[in-house]
Design a protein around this nucleic acid. Structure first.
Lengths: 248, 248
DNA sequence: CGCAAACTTTGACCCAGATCAAAAACTATG
DNA sequence: CATAGTTTTTGATCTGGGTCAAAGTTTGCG
């Protein structure tokens, strides 16, 4: 079973507290008093490591707990009947994974690490139990789930109503913004996924992603060097996403 | 403001209880004791009517409450920069709407009634407050949100990896199953939305939807008469969705 | 009941992006 | 540091479903 597979995921030293994590503005503790923060450590069942390519959970696994990403990044994906992978999300440090599994008590999708990563396991029962005593915690959890709903609907909108260039632009701007929120540069960052994974996620082929990036580069919008991205003109990028922004 | 617009939504007699609703297997009360059920009525702030085409809420509206559909059906949709409508979901009797609004305290999307409908307004604060005393209620709410997450991701998968015929087949089978769960015939039902709305939702044009339905009809899979649908061969329909099911 | 408006069907043509192909650039490993 | 494998780029061609067009159907309203 996934949980015991030492090649994919192993226990790490537990001597870390939520208060010292440096992620409390993204993770669950947001808006809690330092008093509440101490309680928070009680809901983290364990901390794991997950090697690049290792599974955090697989579709069909029984629902054990939610996971907060302490460091690293993950993709979640479906494997179709013929094993064709379809990515529905990339998750970065501070994001929470596994909320799909609550509804049927088992995971619908798969999650693997894009790089060596660490996660905190948060059993839902403990979260709910502590939530009875700390209303702000419960409410924050509801916000997190709601954010997931909004994100997933945005993805459906993206896959429905937009052209290739818009999709890639949305993808880059979204990443940029997420890095900014985490304190990294919004102008210069490294992709953690391949062209194929990007295309898979955006409903495009890797060739199309590559072509669009080349086009953006010759238009002076970005500087692309492998996975190294420099956003040179975010405003013009935003105009590609929403042409009504263009001022003549 | 939407909430006061009498043309769109008006108050209806309040003399109805959750226990007498006949929907308690779909709505929030699922799995609660009859004792808890009495508490439940306390979280319903009001019951409204919503005429065909009327807005239940609009993108940007402040988040007032969640809504459980007592009768009727709704679509939720985004209006792009040029006002181009993009539907991300159809909701039937017993479904809950508005969970997108929790994350930012305002609605991201619009909701209008596909037919004259009635809803129960459920303020989140009351739900959370009562949830502190009734853990099963809180947990059931988490399952509902999780189900929404799974649905939205499934939509993204549909819009990504499938062809026109598969999409229409998925749509019909999904509706069939949802009607069945509600005690209606899974073989014979009425569409509440136009070809255009179906196509919009599925990422197809109304012409393509029409063509696919015609093709399904001549193949003997369905009998289509306007909005009246008879599923004649659900098994073969499932094979269209997932060709690996085919036995030669 | 009759006419207008809305919805649906069917046909002809076209295009964005998929697919196929092949070379180039990078990465990892012994 | 050479070599095999992976990832990316670029080009040529193909196609599912979009777009445009026009006729047929249904519904609702006065």
């Amino acid at each position: 079973m996934t949980m015991q597979d030492a090649h994919e995921k192993s226990h790490a030293p537990e001597g870390v507290s939520c208060a010292s994590c440096g992620l409390y503005q993204f993770c669950l503790p947001l808006g809690l008093s330092s008093n509440d923060m101490e309680l928070l450590d009680r809901i983290v069942a364990s901390r794991h490591e997950c090697k690049r390519g290792g599974y955090l959970f697989r579709a069909g696994d029984p629902f054990q707990s939610l996971y907060a990403i302490r460091s690293g990044s993950f993709k979640i994906f479906d494997l179709g009947p013929e094993g064709r992978e379809k990515i529905t999300g990339f998750y970065l440090t501070g994001d929470m994974l596994g909320m799909d599994a609550i509804s049927a008590n088992q995971h619908f999708y798969n999650a693997t690490a894009l790089e060596d990563s660490r996660v905190c396991a948060i059993p839902l029962e403990r979260l709910e139990e502590l939530g009875h005593h700390v209303p702000a915690l419960m409410h924050h959890f509801h916000k997190l789930m709601s954010r997931e709903v909004v994100h997933d609907q945005s993805l459906a909108l993206l896959l429905n109503g937009t052209k290739a260039e818009q999709r890639v632009a949305v993808f880059l701007l979204d990443l940029s913004q997420r890095f900014a929120t985490r304190g990294y540069s919004p102008h210069h960052f490294n992709l953690r996924m391949t062209r194929e994974e990007i295309g898979n996620y955006l409903g495009l082929t890797l060739e199309t992603v590559s072509r669009v990036l080349s086009k953006f580069q010759s238009a002076g919008l970005v500087k692309v060097h492998h996975k190294d991205i420099v956003l040179r003109d975010p405003d013009r990028m935003r105009e590609i996403v929403d042409p009504t922004l263009r001022r003549h």
